[in-house]
């Protein structure tokens, strides 16, 4: 599945309410868990996997974007959860991060996971696109940007 096929407007949050990296991950995973109807224990386990990966090295890029991710056993399909913060959040980069793409991937489809991350990295490298993302006011605005 491509990035466009994976995007879900219910998995976009603008603005995020968290002020630190760990809470942002919890908030994004919480959005995913609510949509999927997952129990709290499973949500906590997913958040822990994402945080464990971040602990090895921050996924914050230089342009205020971070792409935290984890591969998970038993996931029905890959998911991308997008969050945009009004204020820069410390996430391990030189500057604060405002745009988060949380990628949750099945552990049995490495090629698809890599394609998904590559597509996000490519859109994130467009300064114009990032500016438009940052000026988005609603999840619908963000969703629509990808389809223009």
């Amino acid at each position: 599945m491509t990035l466009l096929e994976t995007l879900d407007r219910d998995l976009i949050k603008v603005p995020l309410s968290s002020a630190d990296g760990s809470s942002v991950i919890d908030e994004l995973v919480g959005l995913y868990a609510a949509k999927q109807g997952l129990p709290q224990a499973e949500a906590s386990s997913i958040a822990a996997a994402v945080k464990a990966r971040e602990a090895l090295g921050s996924t914050a890029m230089e342009n205020g974007i971070a792409i935290p991710h984890a591969k998970l056993h038993g996931l029905a399909r890959n998911a991308v959860v997008i969050g945009i913060s009004r204020i820069p959040v410390p996430f391990g980069g030189k500057e604060g991060t405002r745009v988060f793409f949380l990628v949750l991937a099945r552990d049995d489809s490495p090629a698809e996971h890599i394609q998904l991350l590559s597509s996000i990295a490519k859109v994130a490298s467009s300064q114009l696109f990032v500016r438009m993302l940052l000026s988005s006011k609603t999840p619908q605005d963000v969703y629509q940007l990808f389809f223009e």
Binding site: S58, T59, M61, H69, I114, Q115, L117, S118, A121, A124
Partner: peptide, 16 residues
């Protein structure tokens, strides 16, 4: 085996 994408993800600090 898309090694180019893997290298790009490391360069972008998405992969360690």
């Amino acid at each position: 085996v898309n090694t180019k994408a893997l290298s790009e993800l490391v360069r972008a600090h998405i992969f360690i």
